[in-house]
Design a protein around this nucleic acid. Structure first.
Length: 284
DNA sequence: CTGCAGGCCGGCG
DNA sequence: CGCCGGCCTGCA
């Protein structure tokens, strides 16, 4: 068992704020998930995380990277709470959301599936995809499946994807997988690009528009300044910052507002506002 | 039975 | 270019 001391960390908020799709809740403090090459069981007890896994190689490093444990969130939360009162109030409810660093390929495919979709269905499809094409891992007498590698999807057809319940997104996934293979694109090496260039590259994949690209930038490439705007963020922003226009505002207005006012941690702010709105803490 | 959900694509004005 | 209709699927 690995024990890690944490500060400004809330496991529940981090895993339930909508940034990831493959964690299974055991109770309010314990979750089981599959990340990269292993299965993790993580339990939080106040300032400690207790982690068990099928694979202890490099485990501490894997966990620290995934949960962004080398970043000082106490400082970040102090900084962003000074921006305005809305953020300060939201942070009181959701302090400790960590900005996960997830696998590039998994995030790309998962967020293509997320378009005009709901969380249970997204999770179902991602899990089915993994069960069908991912490597099986046995942990505590149960079977889990890694997210498939790019290579393991090379012969999967459009209708195979359709059978996972992804609907019209089937050919988006197919096209993206084929682009990655035929153009020999290395998602990791794209880290070298600046955020705007990287967004443009991502948006060339079918099924990746502005919102999906921004989620990939935030949740896989760790670009904390990116501010993805989905319907919930649209709602929360119109309630908190644009009440006088009766809620009728464009995404560009929101984008501009965030860029001008939220700074280099706009993505963290987005997660807190999203979680507050989504869970009815902030009302319409 | 309609409406709708973490949007995107493609066609049209 | 910006706008807008259509879209898998499952669940309220």
């Amino acid at each position: 068992m690995l024990k890690i001391k944490v500060e400004c960390f809330n496991l529940k908020y981090t895993l339930e704020c909508g940034q990831c799709f493959r964690w299974q809740k055991i109770d309010n403090m314990t979750y089981i998930g599959v990340i990269k090459d292993r299965v993790l069981k993580v339990k939080q007890d106040n300032e400690y995380l207790y982690i068990t896994s099928n694979n202890y190689d490099n485990l501490e490093q894997v966990v620290k990277e995934y949960f962004d444990l080398n970043t000082d969130y106490k400082k970040i939360e102090e900084d962003i709470s000074k921006i305005d009162n809305n953020i300060k109030e939201a942070l009181k409810n959701t302090s400790g959301i960590r900005h996960l660093k997830q696998d590039y390929f998994e995030t790309l495919i998962s967020y293509i599936i997320s378009a005009n979709n709901n969380i249970p269905r997204i999770s179902k499809s991602v899990n089915l995809l993994s069960e069908k094409y991912g490597k099986k891992i046995t942990f505590e007498d149960k079977d889990y499946y890694l997210f498939p590698t790019l290579d393991s999807l090379k012969d999967v057809s459009v209708s195979d994807y359709r059978n996972l319940g992804v609907g019209f997104r089937d050919n988006y996934i197919y096209s993206t997988v084929n682009d990655l293979i035929s153009k020999n694109i290395d998602l990791k090496s794209l880290e070298d690009l600046d955020t705007d260039s990287l967004r443009n590259v991502l948006m060339e994949f079918k099924g990746v528009g502005r919102k999906v690209a921004d989620c990939i930038l935030l949740f896989a490439y760790a670009r904390k300044e990116v501010f993805p705007i989905d319907v919930w963020v649209e709602r929360v922003m119109s309630v908190l910052y644009f009440k006088e226009n009766g809620g009728r505002l464009t995404k560009k207005q929101i984008q501009d507002y965030a860029k001008e006012n939220f700074g280099k941690y706009a993505g963290i702010i987005q997660q807190h506002l999203f979680y507050n709105m989504r869970n009815g803490i902030i009302k319409q």
